[in-house]
Design a protein around this nucleic acid. Structure first.
Ligand code: FES
Ligand code: FES
Lengths: 148, 148
DNA sequence: ATAATAAAAGACATCAATGTCTTTTATTAT
DNA sequence: ATAATAAAAGACATTGATGTCTTTTATTAT
């Protein structure tokens, strides 16, 4: 896998909220972690970070919970990646040398650079909404289990 | 970075041996780790694995050391990857679901599958020799430091 | 105001990747 | 045979990613 577990949890969490929010309600971390089979407190911290970065909204107390923000659906996978991973690593040398460019290429640079750029472009142009509409009728089972 | 630190050490180690082996001699782990600024014993274990997988040759005792095997130069990056990483992960779901194919796609599958295939193809078709001849006149400084 | 609720925050645990140190084994030169 | 050399192997340490548990803070209903 190229993507971190944390990133996956974040995407699935956001999608779950998007799926049930049609019913116009807040969603509690308890429900999300149970339905998605994701560690509750770990997911909690991830969603907290998403809130800090404006990707989600949260309210404490009774009837509180998480919900999508105004423009969550138009956020990109790169925006999510920025909150769950170290964005710099996307552009750093695969051999971890200080510079990574055509001028100072490591033996792998010319081989991997194009693919890495395609990957970054993908994260950048794909939105949460793309994930929802892209999968023909996204449903709970598409994000729920670690199985079939 | 997509590739592990271990993979990078392996590649650099092999390339170092290839560069100095013109002089027809064995290379000691001590020299490699020093010239490449790589942890000696960690690199040792990595090279051991490469030997087990037929990517390198090693001899104990005085005048011993590591050297390229008959066909090391024609080995692919995927062969190296196989000894340093978990090859299955290359084809597993980015959200870590049990299946990963067009029939059971997770929300990310259609987005990332093509790029992942390109990446695997790259590892598969690129050989050690490609790295040597691909970089215009590969030299020590191309693999030696973690910097410029 | 008080109690209940739910997120936020903090301390700590576990695991895999990475790194260090010591002992063992094989080979060679004497 | 013995000593020196160098890889192999094994035990242990560190770090970052991941996961668990407890306490705190904010909000709401009563
Ligand atoms: S210099 Fe190594 S990947 Fe760019
Ligand atoms: S099913 Fe998730 S990447 Fe293929």
């Amino acid at each position: 896998m190229i993507l971190s577990k944390t990133f996956g949890y974040a995407i699935r969490g956001i999608l779950y909220i998007a799926l049930v929010q049609k019913e116009e309600r807040k969603v509690q971390i308890e429900e999300i972690s149970e339905k998605l089979s994701v560690p509750r407190h770990f997911l909690g911290k991830i969603l907290q970070e998403l809130v800090r970065n404006g990707l989600l909204t949260s309210v404490k107390g009774p009837n509180g919970g998480f919900s999508l923000g105004e423009n969550t659906l138009s956020k990109s996978l790169l925006d999510v990646y920025r909150t769950t991973d170290h964005i710099e690593q996307l552009t750093q040398c695969e051999l971890r040398f200080n510079q990574c460019d055509k001028i100072h290429p490591c033996p792998l640079h010319d081989k991997v650079q194009q693919i890495r750029e395609e990957f970054i472009a993908l994260l950048s142009k794909t939105t949460i909404n793309d994930l929802i509409t892209g999968t023909k009728k996204l449903q709970l089972h598409n994000i729920a289990t670690t199985g079939v």
